[in-house]
Design a protein around this nucleic acid. Structure first.
Lengths: 222, 222
DNA sequence: GTCTATAGCTTGATAGAC
DNA sequence: GTCTATCAAGCTATAGAC
């Protein structure tokens, strides 16, 4: 019993150190970008030794990849669950486009509200990666294409007459609007003189879903 | 006469050096981000001396600002002309939402096609700035808010019953979809197994306008 | 205006003690 | 696993010759 407690404590500490580095890296990469942050800055902010970052992740780039992957897997699970819940609820009737869009976007709203600052940093980082020519075409497909394909299938089923290219381009527009929204850059606050607030994700999401649904309907339903 | 030619030649050379630095910076910042590029790299690529970057732009950050501003002013003029052409053409009849959206987005398509690689780099850079929490809420408003407000007025006129917040959020969705599109990241090429091509901006734009228009109509027309 | 030279730091990564 | 010490390289910015 004593032994077990001891072992658990040690393991937790190790795991915690690694997680602390990931948390710190996530936060700083989100603010200043990959090249704008040094490994020293990350480890200092995490309260661990400089050398540990390379020990755990081999290189700065390895650390970056680990940051991206960590929450991608979790987010994919949430999205999958949301889609399956839709299908269960609908039974034999076909899914609505709106329900599919909501299943794709709602998990981000939930994580941003319930998941704390870590998830907010992660979404900010994803927005930047998505729009980067260096990473956007390579990293995101790696982590997200399988689940996106699953949603594309659902959309195809919901709109059987849809043109295939239109379907992909509509997803592309969704992707751009969604990632910018959850990046919470404050741009719209400035433009609207404070009327709209980037942080009020509930308000944006309530508009995002019908906006995107209308776009899909216009291009993919005949 | 001789004197005038001489002076002109000198001025051109100076201007060319400055422009070469801007071109090189624009290209490299677009690929690797602000922090990912060194001033040495920029000047080496431009074929000029290292010290000239600081001589002309005071600092690396000053160079970055100059890159952002240079084409913003030109783009704003093109957009303004496009909107005024719409208004002239419409005469007394109210503008359609689709025409306004097209006036806002079409200048990007034209510049990307006719403007060469410089404009493509610029749009890629804008996409990254737009999604950055550090710059998105500060730099873009500075250069683009006046013209965006002008377009918001036009949209308000076209949809007199529209809710003010909805109008701003719809613009926000447009902004995310538009900047990602002109960043040409190659993401959709991968996802669609080559069916859709990021570089085929003509094809995307033809879908972007009706997609966004449908979104505006759904939220701002009652 | 242009260029050389360099000051003064910070960087990613690692070798080796414990 | 953790940490100290250090390396070689690269960085921004500038002072001063021309």
């Amino acid at each position: 019993m004593n032994k077990k407690v001891k072992t658990t404590t040690v393991k937790t500490t190790k795991g915690e150190r690694k997680q602390k580095i990931l948390d710190s890296a996530e936060r700083l990469f989100a603010i200043k970008g990959f090249e704008g942050v040094s490994v020293r800055e990350v480890t200092k902010n995490a309260g661990v030794d400089v050398a540990l970052a390379n020990y755990y992740f081999n290189s700065k780039r390895g650390l970056f990849d680990a940051v991206l992957m960590r929450r991608a897997e979790i987010l994919n699970e949430y999205r999958m669950e949301a889609l399956e819940a839709c299908e269960r609820e609908a039974g034999d009737t076909p899914l609505t486009v709106e329900a599919i869009i909501d299943a794709y976007t709602h998990p981000l709203l939930d994580r941003s509200h319930l998941g704390g600052a870590g998830w907010k940093s992660y979404f900010s980082l994803i927005a930047q990666v998505n729009n980067s020519p260096e990473w956007g075409g390579i990293m995101l497909p790696r982590y997200y294409d399988p689940i996106v394909r699953r949603f594309m299938d659902a959309l195809r089923n919901a709109m059987p007459n849809s043109n295939e290219e239109n379907l992909y381009w509509c997803y592309h527009f969704l992707s751009g609007a969604l990632t910018l929204t959850f990046a919470e850059t404050g741009r719209i606050d400035h433009l609207s003189n404070g009327l709209c607030k980037s942080k009020d994700l509930e308000a944006v999401h309530a508009r995002l879903v019908p906006f995107i649904t209308a776009g899909f309907n216009a291009l993919c339903q005949e």
